[in-house]
Computed example of a mutant assay.
Amino acid sequence: MTIDLLKREVALEAEHTAPLQRQETDVFGRIGSMEVRLARSQREIDAAQAIRYRVFVEEMHAQLPPEAMRRQRDFDSFDEICDHLLVVDTALFGDPEDQIVGTYRLLRQEVAMAHGGFYSGCEYDLAPLLARHPDKRFMELGRSCVLPHYRTKRTVELLWLGNWAYSVKHGMDAMIGCASFPGISPETHALALSFLHHNARVKGDWTVSARPELYRDMDMMPAEAVNAKRAIMAMPPLIKGYLRLGAMVGDGAVVDQAFNTTDVLIVLPTASIAGRYINYYGADASRFA
């Protein structure tokens, strides 16, 4: 059984009130009372950072810098240059920032290169990959998280609709970003990592590897010893979702001590996105608009 089977399975307080010049056109889609759009204010970004803190620190036991722990916000310098995708439940009582239930952080290549590079470049050597595709525009997906009560198919659909709509709007050719397994022991995930190594590893012009000093081998089990069904079941939902879309993974895993995770690099050319997903969301991401 190969990956083809899986595809078939289907910030200061004063700044918080500053507008980000967002308009209603930033709403990418709606399902019932929930909508997906970009953050419109520093207050909404702050609320997204608070959700990230709840998920990454309180739930996953990440250890952030002292100021982040004191403020109970997950934030870094990349927040200032990224767009922040939000899933908002408008049925919840309160201001817009009180209605945010999920978030993604999006970074376009031209913005990243003007500010020192992509976040995932800290773990993976992206320069050769980007150099081999000078005619393509990359975007980075990161900091994905959803509040526990909202970890449903509907929320995931909206997040992916938002990512797809954003990529269409900005003419993106490929998505990259780190996705995580829990814990800092890759051996704990030998089955799933070995499956990814044998069945979904980047090839040819899309080859990209973990930085040598951070590289952890994913090839821990021979291909014939890997039970594909069990390996897929052992993967975090986010990684399974990427694979269903047609993603590849970079060569080598990276242990992130601060976030208490074992990371893999997702590489997803938009031309590779499974046709049924494009049909579902619409080639122009208009299905739920």
Score class of each variant (00 low, 15 high):
211 R>G: 11
171 G>R: 00
138 F>S: 08
131 A>P: 00
187 E>L: 12
194 S>P: 07
200 A>D: 06
171 G>Q: 03
164 W>S: 02
163 N>Y: 08
229 K>H: 14
149 H>D: 15
203 K>Q: 15
167 S>D: 09
119 Y>T: 07
199 N>L: 11
102 G>N: 01
184 I>W: 00
222 P>C: 05
183 G>Q: 05
166 Y>M: 05
221 M>S: 06
168 V>P: 00
102 G>Y: 04
216 R>M: 11
122 C>D: 15
200 A>R: 05
213 E>F: 00
165 A>I: 08
199 N>E: 15
170 H>F: 09
106 L>N: 00
184 I>A: 13
143 R>D: 07
175 M>R: 02
172 M>W: 04
131 A>N: 13
113 M>F: 10
160 W>C: 09
201 R>T: 14
146 V>H: 01
112 A>T: 03
142 G>S: 01
177 G>R: 04
171 G>C: 04
222 P>Y: 06
124 Y>H: 12
223 A>Q: 15
205 D>C: 12
195 F>I: 09
133 H>E: 02
223 A>N: 15
205 D>H: 12
182 P>W: 03
107 L>M: 10
219 D>P: 11
154 R>M: 14
156 V>K: 04
165 A>Q: 06
192 A>Q: 12
114 A>Q: 13
170 H>P: 00
142 G>F: 05
113 M>Q: 14
128 P>M: 10
229 K>N: 13
210 A>C: 10
120 S>Q: 00
172 M>K: 00
150 Y>E: 02
126 L>H: 06
214 L>H: 10
222 P>D: 08
122 C>S: 15
116 G>E: 01
161 L>C: 07
124 Y>R: 11
186 P>C: 05
149 H>S: 14
184 I>V: 15
142 G>N: 05
198 H>M: 10
115 H>V: 03
104 Y>P: 00
116 G>M: 09
149 H>V: 12
211 R>W: 13
107 L>Q: 00
146 V>L: 07
164 W>Q: 01
189 H>S: 11
217 D>W: 03
145 C>P: 01
104 Y>C: 07
177 G>A: 04
168 V>S: 04
193 L>H: 09
178 C>W: 10
199 N>M: 14
168 V>D: 01
123 E>G: 04
150 Y>P: 10
147 L>N: 07
119 Y>E: 08
